[in-house]
Design a protein around this nucleic acid. Structure first.
Length: 766
RNA sequence: UGGGGUAUCGCCAAGUGGUAAGGCAACUGGUUUUGGUCCAGUCAUUCGGGGGUUCGAGUCCCUCUACCCCAUCCA
């Protein structure tokens, strides 16, 4: 685990180091209302992976609070997926429904505190009362019910005295909160529905916002990771836990970006549409981005986990290139999968000068895969090669068999084309060839140079197979609907031929069909009588790319030269379109006067005078600082840059320093007692401890070093330690100058006068 | 539109004031009995735009812009 840490791991590490928690406990909490997809795989590797990395535990919890959408079969699929990916949850599979009774009591507690009430508004009324994102909502008239009445009503809700929708339980928070989630969120609703686990025991069910935080708490979860769309819900998460005054260890919620991938869809709804409309064969159709789909296709769990680890974790909405997934599976299979031969589109080759048959010894693994194993490969007069591997009129750069170019049959002999036989339509039906007896693989004394070796299958002993070639499900990167489906996402090849060993020996589950890709027997449809292979992923094919490009470019030039786009056009476009200045509200009369005064009397720049004139808080501080004799410009910079940052999180009254401290700091800068760099450190210290700048500087010994005699030796040392960078700098790498300054400053604890360091460094570096 | 987020290479993604990591993709060249793998190399004078602070800014301040999330009795 010596990898760079993502931000979630950084949080966990810090919480463990600070002693906030003794052990990390995470959870993977899916709602069992659909089949898990690769996005779930990301959440699984995060939750289970972090627990594993830090020696903690991870729970699997079915978030089953909505009985009408959830089913056991989905829960089962989720368990399978987690196990398949190689993780084991701590303890039993948990369910939010395990906690229904406790949750109910927490709700009662909230009612008793006057923090929750039974609302009897209709669904539409509730919506109406909620307001909009710009207008505040208003509280329901039922919010004033007494604790007793609420208790009574809530109990009767539980007893089933009311119909669906008659009442709900809501938290009493704030109907005018700018955060919509906080406008008295619903805690419980009545649902007379059969729950997949609790049956008819309950007719009221807790909402996500109420159940999730408390379930986390009940289980002792420390870090509750979820996706970005729950950012706004974090406030309720904290409100409930805080209001109930639940003691440590208390969980906290952190959000990361969900996984998106191009050329596919990830939403449950859209996936379901594909299944229901029959566009795919089911949730486990090998083209689906579901775990079941990838699994059936032949992806290994390792490749999925590796993929999830490779894409990283962040808060930026992003779309991962499916090429990254394809790389993960190739990378995983390359050193594992035995190589065998398969011909998808067979073209008969008769080797006229070969009689009888023999069995060649052929390794399953290429020279660069450190695995052992081989099979006997039958060879005889009649074989099949890939139709693509012969060309009567080859394009430039074609390495395979042509009338003039011999080719090696992999693991066997070199052959030469003698004659091309065609049917009446001109289609090639057969190649008559001859082989070179002294060119046998491993004992080649023929001296013939060939450009490539191609796969083949012996006619007499090969097996027929069905091969399913999958391509991306959608033709466009960001598909919107069925109209974007790729019509060629599945190509079924019925008449493929595979070599004997694939069927009779089965050296492994997954194969590389040489020069084609990685393949996996379809777990549903394949049998020895009717073998069916799924192409997991093709091999990279630089020839296909090259020939396609050439074809395209000749087409383009033939279609007359199109205007080439000027270099860097794209970048410039972007710059122009987004560079426009937005309007800022002009200063009013009074602000204008202050602005003018600051400009003329105090000599402030426009950039300083403007925000000070505008912002009363900053201005008050500034004016007060002036009274203490600070130079206006330095003070203004201090306030505008440093204080402004703190004012984003605190009010003026909360600051631990006043205008006189700021003035003192400004004066120290102007007197060159400390550098600006150190001043920022002093400021930080000051805002933490409330000490005066002078005492901080004295205590820390932060006085500026402005004596060249003290600095020169440091410079020499730095240059001595970095001879290669000195060379690079002298060769013209100007950027390195900053590096040297940094090193010198670091060596002096930041105390050296940077301006002086710059001067001396220029001299020293000549 | 109020609030909450996010912007670093074609795609992911590190980076917490001092030389813009890494992976994928792409492109050279080498090795190769897979046009695979592997190896060597190329690929951000610049971090959404503009200003400011600083000796020095992707990182601090101001401002603008774009995109995502929130008005389910879904999660």
């Amino acid at each position: 685990m010596e990898k760079k840490k993502d931000f979630l791991r950084a949080i966990v590490e810090e919480d463990l180091a600070s002693g906030k928690y003794e052990e990390v406990v995470t959870r993977f909490p899916p709602e069992p209302n659909g089949f898990p997809h690769i996005g779930h795989a990301k959440a699984i590797t995060i939750n289970f992976g972090i627990a594993r990395d830090f020696g903690g535990r991870c729970h699997l919890r079915m978030d089953d609070t909505n009985p009408v959408t959830e089913e056991e079969k989905y829960a089962k699929a989720i368990e399978d997926a987690v196990r398949w990916l190689g993780y084991e949850w701590d303890g039993p599979v948990r369910h939010t429904s395990d906690y229904f009774e406790r949750l109910y009591h927490y709700a009662v507690e909230l009612i008793q505190m006057g923090k929750a009430y039974v609302d009897s508004l209709s669904e539409e009324e509730i919506r109406e009362y909620r307001g909009t994102v710009t207008e505040p909502g208003r509280r329901s008239r039922y919010a004033e019910r007494s604790v007793e009445e609420n208790l009574d009503l809530f109990e009767r809700m539980r007893k089933g005295e009311f119909k669906d929708g008659e009442h709900v339980l809501r938290a009493k928070i704030d109907m005018s909160s700018p955060n919509m989630q906080l406008r008295d969120p619903l805690l419980y609703r009545i649902r007379h529905a059969r729950h997949m686990r609790t049956g008819d025991e309950w007719c009221i069910y807790p909402m996500y916002d109420f159940a999730h935080c408390l379930s986390d708490y009940i289980e002792g979860i420390t870090h509750s990771f979820c996706t970005l769309e729950f950012e706004n819900n974090r406030a309720i998460y904290d409100w409930i836990l805080d209001t109930l005054r639940l003691g440590p260890p208390r969980p906290y919620q952190y959000e990361f970006a969900r996984l998106n991938m191009n050329y596919t869809v990830m939403s449950k709804r859209k996936l379901k549409e594909l299944v229901d409309s029959g566009k795919v064969s089911g949730w486990d159709d090998p083209r689906m981005p579901t775990i079941a789909g990838y699994r059936r296709r032949g992806y290994t769990p390792e490749s999925i986990v590796n993929f999830c680890n490779a894409i990283g974790i962040s808060k930026a909405n992003s779309v991962v290139d499916v090429a990254q997934l394809e790389h993960a599976i190739r990378d995983d299979l390359n050193p594992k999968a035995p190589r065998v031969m398969c011909v998808l589109d067979p073209l008969k080759v008769v080797i006229e000068n070969y009689e009888g048959s023999e069995e060649l010894e052929a390794s399953y693994y290429p020279h660069d895969v450190p695995k052992e194993g081989f099979r006997k490969l039958p060879f005889s007069r009649e074989i099949y090669i890939e139709r693509e591997d012969f060309s009567e009129h080859p394009p430039k750069g074609y390495y395979r068999l042509t009338p003039d170019q011999p080719v090696r049959l992999r693991h066997a002999y070199i052959i030469r084309c003698k004659e091309v036989i065609k049917d009446e339509e001109g289609r090639i039906t057969e190649i008559r060839a001859e082989y070179y007896p002294d060119s046998k693989s491993g004992a080649d004394t023929s001296g013939i140079k060939v450009r490539s070796a191609i796969q083949w299958v012996d006619a007499a002993t090969g097996y027929r197979a069905e091969v399913r070639l999958y391509d991306r499900l959608f033709r466009v990167e960001n598909p919107q609907g069925p109209e974007d489906l790729n019509p060629d996402s599945l190509r079924i090849v019925q008449g493929a031929l595979v070599e004997r060993a694939v069927i009779e020996e089965k050296p492994d589950e997954r194969f590389q069909f040489e020069r084609q890709g990685y393949f996996y027997p379809d777990p549903v449809d394949s049998s020895d009588e009717h073998p069916v292979f799924n192409r997991i992923v093709s091999l990279k094919d630089s020839w296909a790319k090259k020939s396609k490009k050439e074809e395209k470019s000749t087409k383009e030039t033939a279609a007359k030269a199109t205007q080439p786009k000027p270099e860097g056009a794209k970048k410039e476009e972007r710059k122009e379109s987004s560079g426009g200045e937005g309007r800022v509200a002009p200063l009013d009369e009074a602000q204008r006067r202050i602005f003018d005064r600051y400009r003329k009397k105090l000599g402030l720049k426009e950039e300083q005078a403007n925000p000070l004139a505008r912002d009363e808080t900053l201005r008050t501080l500034f004016e007060a600082g002036l009274e203490h004799g600070a130079a206006p410009v330095t003070l203004a910079n201090l306030i505008l840059n440093e204080v402004a940052r703190e004012l984003k999180n605190f009010s003026l009254g909360e600051l631990r320093y006043g205008p006189e401290a700021l003035a003192e700091l400004a004066t120290m800068i102007d007197d060159e007692r400390i550098s600006v760099k150190i001043a920022k450190q002093v400021f930080e210290e000051m805002s933490k401890s409330g000490e005066s700048p002078a005492s901080i500087v004295e205590a820390k010994g932060w006085e500026q070093i402005s004596d060249p005699k003290a600095i020169r030796p440091v410079i020499e040392e730095v240059l001595e330690k970095n001879p290669e960078n000195v060379v690079k700098y002298r060769e013209g790498n100007q950027k390195l100058f900053g590096f040297f300054v940094g090193q010198v400053l670091k060596a002096t604890g930041g105390k050296a006068n940077p301006r002086l360091v710059n001067e001396l460094l220029i001299q020293a570096l000549g």
